[in-house]
Design a protein around this nucleic acid. Structure first.
Length: 227
DNA sequence: GCGACAG
DNA sequence: ATCTTGTCGC
């Protein structure tokens, strides 16, 4: 699929990265336009053992048929350190490269990480959503910011993630008795729809199928990097 | 200054 | 994220 060149450089300093996030966070849309989300792309990343490369993977998933349509990986040199809140500048370029390899355009992107449940309301899901223009959801495995009460133990139960009085997302139980995930709006999305979509994609495991499969994909690709 | 801190 | 084996529990 065609993805325009990002409106900023990936090779930036820490201060520039923060300014970029502040600038583009203003463009995030918390409204869902598309009513039909048929093709869902799950995105994840891994790193080579020597820590030199970032390997991103994307799995295009038919939400109705529960089948993989396509899958691709892309690797990039790591040029940015891991700093909480600036994850995007570490994985972003590889993720976009992997998405460019898709033949079909996804209706939705689910990223491994936060959307607006972020210091500057611009986590990786929001960032990728803004660059691609595709609706996106952040589905993190742990908390970045915000407070919450533990959700009930049954699948489908959720508890709001708050930053003061601001609702940033939902701590959602996607499997009985299993640690919940952190769901937040990425872009062109509303929280209720995001929760429903994540639950729809969680068939048998904690993570949404497209994301879980992308995770496996990059784990395999990583082994082929002998460094 | 201290502690927290997506992947 | 990554380094790593077995093991307890729904």
């Amino acid at each position: 699929m065609y993805i325009p060149r990002p409106p900023h450089n990936w090779k930036v300093t820490k201060k520039q990265a923060i300014l970029i996030q502040k600038k583009f966070s203003k463009k995030v849309s918390k409204v869902s336009n598309n009513k039909t989300f048929k093709l869902v792309a799950g995105v994840d990343a891994a790193f080579s053992r020597n820590g030199q490369y970032c390997i991103a993977g994307v799995v295009l998933w038919d939400i109705k048929k529960k089948k993989i349509i396509e899958h691709h990986t892309a690797s990039k040199n790591l040029i940015f350190p891991y700093i909480p809140g600036l994850l995007t500048f570490r994985e972003g370029s590889a993720v976009i490269a992997a998405l460019r390899k898709l033949n079909m355009k996804p209706d939705l992107l689910i990223c491994d990480g936060q959307g607006i449940a972020h210091q500057r309301r611009f986590g990786i899901a929001s960032h990728v959503g803004i660059i691609t223009g595709i609706p996106s959801i952040g589905c993190g495995k742990s908390r970045l910011i915000g407070e919450y009460k533990e959700p009930s133990l049954k699948k489908g139960k959720g508890s709001p993630l708050y930053f003061g009085s601001e609702e940033l997302g939902t701590v959602l139980r996607t499997k009985d008795y299993v640690k919940p995930v952190f769901v937040s709006i990425g872009h062109k999305m509303d929280l209720r729809s995001a929760e429903k979509l994540i639950l729809q994609c969680c068939t048998k495991y904690r993570l949404p199928e497209p994301v879980r499969l992308a995770d496996r994909l990059v784990a395999t690709a990583k082994k082929k990097f002998h460094c």
